[in-house]
Nucleic acid binder design. Structure first.
Length: 576
DNA sequence: CGGTACGGCTTTAGAGCCGTACCGGTGCGCTAAT
């Protein structure tokens, strides 16, 4: 699973763009990892570590925070596992799924000399849980895996703090950004929980991260001048194609035809539960071993599909986004999107499940612009004003209210109460303190104003979400090179059209041109440049395309500006 | 936002059209009933 090899074995054969953002550790510092630790890593795990891993391990073992955006299979797990050999104290690993926690522990236990790893979650038997806590208290356990929800529990935080935490690792850290807002609000409380653990160094790991996602992760985890390493976004072996459709029926037919004839195993991504069964039935009738997969299925059914896919008895999984993390099958030959995903980040993650063995694979998006409607619907949905009002009222003018007491005080569900509280905190109406939630200083909030401020914040967030969906639309509709678009989105530049996508094959990518190759790249505004706009505030340049500049504004989302306008009207001010 | 199911309508008895209501993704932890 967590092999420390992968893409970095092929440095010579494959140019990957390595970028270090923020206060950089220079290339000269690569490989300074303590010889003794290097030897221990080889002895315990049998790994030869690669440059990006070593750089990140160096940072966290010397007490610095780090965010590593590294491709799947590049040994992200090895980073905290090896760091754990050198760190004095417990390594807490926050992981979004219990299944992933179990996988990680099983992986560690395969190395007889590796330190003890335990999990803390509600799925465990009482006896195992007690044993895990005893091992933590006695200092015999080195790695403790848990979900963010566990850290919302004061008792858990206290017991971990008493055991002395030497490193907090947040695995699949993009979840902080994509799930924290409304789906799993406890992700937003991680930053505070880490402080209550005694503020050990923080290591965030993910395989996907556009600049806005990275910034979000750093901010929400309250990381301090972290080392940010982002490497290897390009997947040249993956052919990218988009097929546009005018109506749902022809789209469905095209998906079925393609999958019926596709060679090798693959994944069809759809938007709803109903579609998973509908496509799986048709594809089964067409002779494929196809199975549906979604979160509404009983767990044993999900497990059967997953293991059948890994084992080869199932060669097509028709799934919602539930089928994703933890799917470690090297020879997935194709990923077909029957519905457009919610963001380019999600899309890139999903197609990244194809071709992990580095052999040729195909990613096809069947695009119907009407499908964006469902994504817009999911992106909407501010909390009900009465809910926000109730939570606001539960926090007195002077004094404080524990978050854990909110649900009981308001009669709301834990989930709804936490969500509303998070929104009020983001709107600077409430503040998290050690004693609990308090009202922000410097202003006497009236309930109406508080609700309105929360609504404004929710609207802002919705705009950002809508603009991310719009970026997905632009990817689907571009005539330019798909790969240049994708890499540009992640802040990487590909100088020439890739030659391995539909627009390159049809020639439009060369006709349209983009990026530096045709001289339209504006050296004045390279990617990542921090800027200020009079209306949209502070942002970062994402990419330049033809005569337009795309900038991400945390409060307004992705915006496209005409370069001529920017020059003539001095629309953007460069920030240091 | 847009697709689908369904009830009601009719140049009236079988089928097709229209408008309206409803629904849609991701997982943790906990509790109650079996």
């Amino acid at each position: 699973m967590c092999a420390a090899f992968g893409p970095f074995d092929h440095d010579g054969a494959r140019p990957y763009h390595r970028r270090v953002v923020g206060a950089a550790v220079g290339a000269g510092n690569w490989g300074v990892m303590d010889d003794a630790l290097r030897a221990r890593a080889a002895e315990v795990f049998g790994w030869q570590l690669r440059a990006p891993q070593v750089e990140v391990i160096d940072a966290v073992t010397s007490g610095r925070d780090a965010l590593a955006v590294l491709p799947t299979g590049s040994g992200k797990s090895a980073i905290y596992q090896v760091a754990g050999l050198a760190i004095d104290g417990l390594v807490v690993v926050v992981s979004p799924l219990v299944a992933l926690q179990d996988d990680q522990v099983a992986g560690l236990r395969r190395h007889p000399d590796a330190p003890l790893a335990v999990t803390i979650n509600a799925a465990e038997h009482v006896g195992d849980r007690r044993a895990a806590w005893e091992a933590i208290a006695a200092g015999t356990a080195r790695y403790a895996f848990l979900a963010p929800e566990q850290l919302a529990n004061d008792a858990v935080v206290d017991r971990l703090r008493q055991a002395r935490v030497g490193l907090v690792t947040v695995d699949e850290a993009h979840c902080v950004s994509s799930w924290g807002e409304d789906f799993r609000p406890d992700y937003l409380l991680l930053g505070e929980a880490i402080e209550r653990l005694g503020r050990p160094p923080v290591l965030a790991l993910t395989a996907t991260g556009s600049a806005p996602v990275r910034r979000d992760v750093v901010e929400r985890l309250r990381m301090r001048t972290p080392l940010v390493v982002a490497a290897g976004f390009d997947r040249p072996e993956l052919r990218l194609q988009v097929v546009r459709h005018e109506d749902a029926e022809t789209k469905r037919d095209a998906v079925v035809e393609q999958v019926a004839h596709a060679s090798g195993a693959g994944i069809v991504y759809v938007a709803t539960h109903a579609e998973t069964t509908a496509y799986a039935d048709v594809l089964t009738a067409r002779g494929r071993a196809a199975r549906p997969y979604h979160a509404g299925m009983p767990m044993h059914g999900r497990t059967a599909v997953h293991t059948g896919f890994l084992g080869g008895e199932v060669d097509v999984v028709v799934a919602t986004t539930a089928f994703g993390m933890g799917i470690d099958k090297p020879d997935v030959r194709w990923v077909v999107h029957a519905d457009v995903p919610e963001s380019v980040d999600a899309y890139y993650q999903e197609i990244g499940r194809a071709g992990r063995d580095r052999s040729a694979a195909v990613a096809t998006l069947h695009y119907l612009s009407a499908d964006l409607g469902l994504r817009r619907f999911f992106a909407a949905g501010s909390p009900d004003p009465d809910t926000v009002r109730a939570v606001f009222a539960a926090v007195p003018h002077s004094g404080s209210t524990e978050r854990s007491a909110l649900a009981a005080l308001t009669g709301l569900s834990e989930h709804a109460a936490t969500r509303a509280a998070n929104l009020l905190v983001e709107a600077s109406v409430l503040v998290d303190q050690d004693v609990g939630l308090v009202r922000a200083q410097g202003r006497r909030w009236r309930a109406d104003d508080a609700v309105r401020a929360a609504e404004r914040r929710a609207d802002e967030r919705e705009h950002v979400e809508q603009s991310r969906i719009d970026m997905m639309r632009r990817f689907a509709e571009t005539l330019g090179c798909r790969r240049q678009f994708l890499l540009g989105y992640f802040g990487d530049e590909l100088p020439d059209p890739c030659g391995n996508c539909d627009t390159c094959s049809s020639g439009t990518a060369y006709a349209v041109g983009s990026h530096p190759a045709d001289g339209t790249h504006d050296d004045e505004w390279p990617p990542d440049t921090a800027v200020r706009h009079p209306v949209w505030g502070v942002g970062n340049v994402m990419s330049t395309e033809d005569d337009r500049l795309t900038v991400f504004f945390p409060h307004a989302g992705y915006r496209t500006l005409a370069l001529a306008d920017v020059r003539k009207r001095h629309l953007l001010t460069r920030l240091p």
